Amino acid sequence: MKYILTGTSGFVGKEILAQALSNPLITSLLILSRRPLPNISSLDPRIKVIVLENFLSYPDALKSEFTGVKAVLWALGGSNTNPTPKGKCDEVEVQYPLTLARALIEASKTSAEHVCHVVKIRFLLISGTFSVRDQEKPLWLLKEGRKARGLAETRLLELAEKSGNFEAVVIKCGYVLKKDNVVPELLVGFSKQAIRVDELAAAMVELAVMGSGSKTIRNAELRSLGKRLLKEQMERDK
């Protein structure tokens, strides 16, 4: 099946790519990027990098590439530690993922005219534990980014309600640590607001491939799933 990944040059996106390439059920991977990624393109024959100058516009020629897409792993945007520049939050955090979602829905409708069975599109949006959907709620810290990500969650979930062929899954991860971070496992678990990047990536790929049954996946569930999957991988590799 075909999958779309964004943000592969970022900390989380790189790890998601590694996990995606280890999954044999992913037979095609479209990577949307602002610039060519020769090092990534050569990693695996399943990869196709699509250079997109404007994440607010998807021409018809590009939409034809979306035929058969099963899921999107959206890892593009800011975070609490690396926020989106002021004044760009709405565009990057809200409009970028929404524009792709609408393009995918439109492409799936075109496909439905020619085939009997159309794959339901699953859109996994990395947001954050501290994102806020209530746009009127007063906030003291990082309010622009937190509200923008909360608005993106709301808009994607609304889009899913209106479309029978689109599913939105909000990934409410906590503070993302390096996989070899020296923070003791006990403290990471005790905080309940942290997750190692390989745990997050493994969980996201599994949810993209197998589905979730839930519209919002929180940090504790992501950690539990990711830890189990990584343990199973280690046992298989022995």
Rank of each mutant, 00 (worst) to 15 (best):
F123P: 00
F123Q: 02
L124N: 08
T129A: 12
T129V: 10
F130Y: 13
F130G: 00
F130S: 12
V132C: 10
V132R: 02
D134S: 09
K137W: 03
K137F: 12
P138L: 02
L141F: 13
K143Y: 06
K143W: 13
K143D: 05
K143H: 05
K143C: 04
E144N: 04
G145K: 01
A148M: 04
A148R: 02
A148V: 00
L151I: 01
E153W: 01
E153V: 03
E153G: 02
T154E: 06
T154H: 04
E158M: 10
E158T: 09
E158G: 06
L159T: 03
L159Q: 07
L159D: 09
E161C: 05
E161L: 11
K162R: 13
N165F: 11
N165L: 13
E167T: 11
E167C: 06
A168C: 07
A168Y: 04
A168W: 03
A168G: 08
V169C: 08
V169P: 01
V169K: 03
V170N: 00
K172C: 11
G174R: 05
Y175E: 05
V176A: 03
L177G: 11
K178I: 01
K178Y: 08
K178R: 14
K179P: 12
N181S: 15
N181F: 09
N181Q: 09
N181W: 12
V182E: 12
V182F: 15
V182P: 02
V182Y: 14
V183N: 05
P184Y: 13
P184C: 11
L186S: 15
L187A: 12
G189N: 14
F190V: 10
S191P: 01
S191T: 14
K192R: 15
K192I: 08
Q193I: 15
A194Q: 12
A194P: 00
I195K: 02
I195F: 07
I195T: 14
V197D: 04
D198R: 11
D198W: 05
E199H: 14
L200T: 07
L200Q: 03
L200Y: 10
A202Q: 10
A202K: 05
M204Q: 12
E206R: 12
E206D: 15
V209K: 07
V209L: 06
V209W: 10
M210I: 02
G211D: 09
G211S: 13
G211C: 10
S212D: 10
G213F: 08
G213L: 08
K215V: 08
T216R: 15
I217S: 02
I217F: 01
N219F: 03
A220S: 12
A220D: 10
L222V: 08
R223F: 08
R223M: 09
